[in-house]
């Protein structure tokens, strides 16, 4: 993506006095805000490398005097949840097990919905879509009881398919929205030409539309990975004892109600739990903006 011509940077002539100040102002603004945004991450990281003795001194912004990774090791391998002291390891595996199928299915379904909504004539589809969008505003809590009932009757309550289906259901509004708007921005001539060539619904979807969906799919992956990985409530209710995600374990470790709070372990556990979505953002941040720019959210 080539930078566009912008007012401040258009010319190659030496900057005027005023422009130098302007640039300085821009960097000052961004710098100060960057510090504000980084402050929590800084506090989490320095705290996680301190010993409890140091934390008790109460200087949360100071660098660790004695750098130790004990808290990280403990959070990963031996922090306790009730009688089981296995750390976050188990939950990490469970979260991955939940994440992969949930992301794949919800994105495929979102793409399919978006494609059918924007290229095909289906009566009442827009009404369905409107209901879906409105549904996304309702607190999850309201859904829990009826879903538990229905899942129990179909025998998927407390199982991996159960939690994956739940994530697909709750991810559907935003996923459908993303793909529908992205496809609305694609040239309709492509579609018409394929139709004239006799290509059917699935053939157009797989051969033409999906290959063009990469930019928006990246946006969708980022959003779903974040949402599903960070989910606590649905995992707690629907995943079953064998598949409890990492966030549930994090909650168990952080929210113990008695004893001295091991802030360093809590912080290390928190950062560990956030690593997957953070990594996804760091690795694909540029694609995020690019994907959106490619028409993802145009109306």
């Amino acid at each position: 993506m080539m930078p566009q011509a912008k007012p401040a940077a258009a010319a190659k002539r030496p900057l005027t006095y005023q422009e130098v100040w302007g640039r300085a102002g821009i960097y000052a603004f961004l710098g100060v805000l960057a510090l504000f945004f980084l402050l929590p991450l800084y506090v989490m990281l320095v705290t996680s490398f301190k010993s409890m003795d140091e934390i008790r001194l109460g200087l949360i912004f100071s660098l660790p005097q004695q750098f130790t990774v004990d808290a990280w090791v403990k959070a990963w391998t031996s922090a306790c949840t009730g009688l089981e002291c296995t750390g976050l390891r188990v939950g990490f595996g469970n979260s991955v097990k939940i994440l992969l199928p949930s992301v794949v299915f919800s994105i495929l379904l979102g793409a399919l919905n978006g494609y059918a909504l924007s290229f095909w004539k289906v009566k009442g589809a827009n009404v369905l879509f409107a209901c879906l969008l409105l549904g996304s505003f309702i607190p999850y809590q309201v859904f829990i009881y009826p879903l538990v009932r229905v899942y129990a009757q179909t025998g998927i309550y407390g199982s991996l398919p159960g939690i994956v289906l739940t994530h697909v259901i709750f991810g559907m509004p935003v996923m459908t929205l993303l793909f529908r708007n992205y496809y609305s921005g694609l040239p309709v001539e492509l579609f018409k030409a394929a139709r004239i060539d006799g290509a059917g619904f699935w053939k157009i979807f797989i051969a033409i539309i999906l290959p063009m969906s990469v930019p928006i799919a990246i946006v969708a992956v980022i959003m779903q990975v974040t949402a599903i990985w960070n989910d606590f409530l649905l995992g707690l209710v629907f995943a079953g004892r064998e598949n409890l995600p990492m966030t549930v374990q994090l909650n168990n470790i952080v929210n113990t109600t008695t004893g001295e709070r091991a802030y360093n372990v809590n912080m290390a556990a928190t950062v560990l739990t956030s690593l997957v979505p953070l990594a996804v953002y760091l690795l694909s941040g540029r694609w995020f903006v690019r994907g959106i720019a490619s028409g993802a959210v145009k109306g």
């Binding site: 928190t270 956030s274 953002y281 903006v289």
Partner: peptide, 24 residues
Amino acid sequence: LFRTVFLYPYAMSFVVAGLIWQWI
């Protein structure tokens, strides 16, 4: 770099956002 710094909080869960600001 700036973009990543401003966007990374969105990758954290709301629980983390609440806990850490409560602490600060």
